[in-house]
Design a protein around this nucleic acid. Sequence first.
RNA 1: GGGCAUGUAGCUCAGUUGGAUAGAGCGUCAGAUUCCGGUUCUGAAAGCCGAGGGUUCGAAUCCUUCCAUGCCCGCCA
Length: 588
Amino acid sequence: MLKLRNALQHRLLEATTQAFPLADVVVDFPLSPATKPEFGDFQANGAMGLAKVLGRPPRRIAQAVVDQLHVDDLCHPPQVAGPGFINFTVRAEVLAAEVEARLDQPRLGVPTAQPQQRVVVDFSSPNIAKEMHVGHLRSTVIGDCIARLLSFLGHRVVRLNHLGDWGTQFGMLIAHLKHMAPRSLSGEERVELGDLVAFYRQAKERFDEDEAFQEQSRREVVNLQAGEPESLRAWQLLCQQSRKAFQAIYDRLDVHLVERGESFYNQALPGVVEDLEQARLLVVDDGARCVFLEGMTAKDGQPLPLIVQKRDGGYNYATTDLAAIRQRLASPDAGGEGAERVVYVTDAGQSNHFAAVFQVAQRAGWVPKGCRLQHVPFGLVQGADGKKLKTRSGATVRLQDLLDEAVDRARRDLVERMAQEQRQNEEDFIAHVAETVGIAAVKYADLSQNRTTNYQFNFDRMLSLQGNTAPYLLYAYVRIQGIARQGGSLVAAAPGAICLQAPQELNLARQLLNFDEVILEMEQDLLPNRLCSYLFGLSQTFNRFYDQLPVLKAPEPSRATRLALCRLSARTMNLGLALLGIKTLDRM
RNA sequence: GGGCAUGUAGCUCAGUUGGAUAGAGCGUCAGAUUCCGGUUCUGAAAGCCGAGGGUUCGAAUCCUUCCAUGCCCGCCA
């Protein structure tokens, strides 16, 4: 409806200037989508605002504007309602023409962004030698969705996995590896570390108990940073092992990332501190080198420092994040990424940190004009008790276990339903459906909630076949495919064949045509739940349509019209879900 | 103590630049089936939008004070 809205907005402004040719009044008369279906398709609320300026009753103003409006080709006569709203209802023939035009548009009416930018989306970011857990779920799912959206809009998107692959804890791990599997380092023996979490735990235990081991661990950190070959090899071995585990999960989630761990910026860290020194931002405080932040205070009301080099000379995460910003925003000739926008998808707890780091980057002059650094925060994943999600024994929930359970449950549901319906299906089918539904349910549950709030994780709810869930949406899609299987061609409609008559047809057409508005809205604030609630509403409208009107058995021209609506519904669902990172099924 | 969030129906949550009578889903209760997959559809009950004050034609939305909850606050990320 974007095109229609723009056209109407244009005419509305013309009518307003005709009605009130006052040079000194800036006439702003915005047209927005109607807040309720009974108000039509669009509404204009400008009359109330102008009432004071013009010193006339708002309804009279609205009527004066309507009198100058020429929109007969697009709408029914606009209605003045309430205190002075103007309501517009688009003509059925116009809707039909829009539906027909959209049937063959690959982008379903969504324009590409102008200008197209180079965007870095930084998300997921697990730590080497630790397992991915619920904490990584939201970043991975939301980040992937945002990256998909921005690429769809035509931006050149680089999806970076800022892996925790460097730092003091590696000394401990390397030292432990050297004890456990010394021959693996020389390549004489292939080592399978197996459960890296257990390995990490062992190393940590030993570190806490054994003083000699502590000393050795510290030496390994120094060795690693100095590039000592054997320590480096141990480090690589650990990274490789983790990478395999991560990749298995990314494959399952259909999430693609470019690995760009913290170690990538290691060489740049001294330069970052030098730059800050050059920019006269650096202050030595209590032996640490830091930048004092503007507008941020610590507990005692003193200015808050961002430490970039510790007392012992080591660097910390703030330094790495600064190095990353500098590299991402630098031009490609300077070895940079040339990004015009960098989006960080991390939990809301890091808001302060990013505000600090962005401020320092800004003051250091690393952010070129027109470039934008953006933290996209999200809330915690909580259990049914409203507290941070844990297993029954109190441990962190492994992401792999969480996905397994979702798929298991989806499978049990499916098998039970098949028994009830006396349906026979191949094992391949069952496995594929269970996997798709399970993963979709987990993703959708996360995305369908406003990301800024904490989110209560609940298997029963997300896998339910009713309500705002992935299975409900997938089922609506499956129904359309069912029509196709029964002989309804969703391939094409004859030109001019669409004739919208029944209210269910008109409702569905309107909903379908709103897709473009929703995508642009989602782009504005990067809230995937906007798209989710749209797709849920579309599924509901479709189910009503499907329930109340026959498609295949309908006489012409209804049959062709309804098939066209089915086709556009399927395409819209498919594209919408794809932007969420969710795959559709033809049968389930 | 400071900062950032959050507070809307029994539960889980939407609510667009301030717009019309406050919106879903689940649950509850009452209905629908000659139909392309009933995993559906129709309807009902359910609200002091945390509390007070302010801004204006108009506030869940903006400002302010307070209350409650969560997260963060110097060398971990």
